[in-house]
């Protein structure tokens, strides 16, 4: 269970889910761009962020549809060549959303699909992260948030290993000061 303050978890819950209202709701016309009044009618089809769709689903106020990123088309593409599919474009929180959406839409195949997608992409991520020096823009642009964290972790541990081989870590400047431009003004001397 991610923490209340976890940024990625908060942003994941912002992903849009298409829902159909099973009840009417007053005073929230802003949610439905097609609505002419300030109300939402029963049967209206609206895109809601996950945090809202989830809670309304629990109150049986809406029924949810499977998001586009878990559609048949994406599944076919993943089956053809998993590591070539641009998952970030489809949904940067692909796995997390899939995990949370599965109980809501009653589609039992999502779990197996997520596992298939992850395991078949994992090998490529690992080998690319160890072999590329610096970043691999073309490849890492296709990764979801979780995958790029994995990629980064593998890359930096390989870099740390190589550094260790040539004599260990050194004292370094704090990374937050890294982008400081050189100033020509006389600096006050530090006592």
């Amino acid at each position: 269970m991610p923490s209340y303050y976890n940024i990625d978890d908060v942003l994941m819950e912002d992903e849009p889910i298409s829902v159909v209202f099973q009840v009417g709701a007053n005073g929230v016309g802003l949610l439905d761009p097609g609505s002419e009044t300030n109300n939402i009618e029963k049967g209206a089809k609206v895109d809601l962020p996950f945090w809202l769709a989830h809670e309304l689903y629990l109150r049986q106020a809406v029924s949810t549809n499977v998001p586009a990123c878990f559609s048949m088309k994406t599944r076919k593409e993943i089956q053809a060549d998993a590591s070539c599919v641009d998952l970030r474009f489809r949904c940067p929180y692909f796995y997390e959303l899939g995990y949370k959406i599965a109980p809501l839409v009653g589609d039992k195949s999502i779990g197996a699909f997520l596992r298939y997608a992850f395991t078949s992409r994992y090998g490529e991520i690992l080998s690319k992260s160890h072999s590329t020096a610096g970043t691999a823009p073309k490849f890492s642009a296709r990764l979801t948030k979780e995958e790029s964290q994995l990629f980064e972790a593998a890359r930096s541990s390989m870099a740390a290993f190589k550094k260790w081989k040539i004599g260990g870590s050194r004292l370094e400047k704090a990374s937050i000061l890294g982008r400081k431009r050189k100033t020509t003004l006389p600096q006050p001397s530090i006592p």
């Binding site: 908060v10 007053n26 929230v28 949610l31 945090w51 309304l56 109150r59």
Partner: peptide, 20 residues
């Protein structure tokens, strides 16, 4: 559980979301 109730629920949820 009428239209007003669900409207109020949505506003309440939006508040807690903003708070988070």
């Amino acid at each position: 559980r009428n239209e007003d109730h669900y409207g109020a629920v949505i506003h309440h949820l939006s508040l807690t979301r903003n708070k988070r």
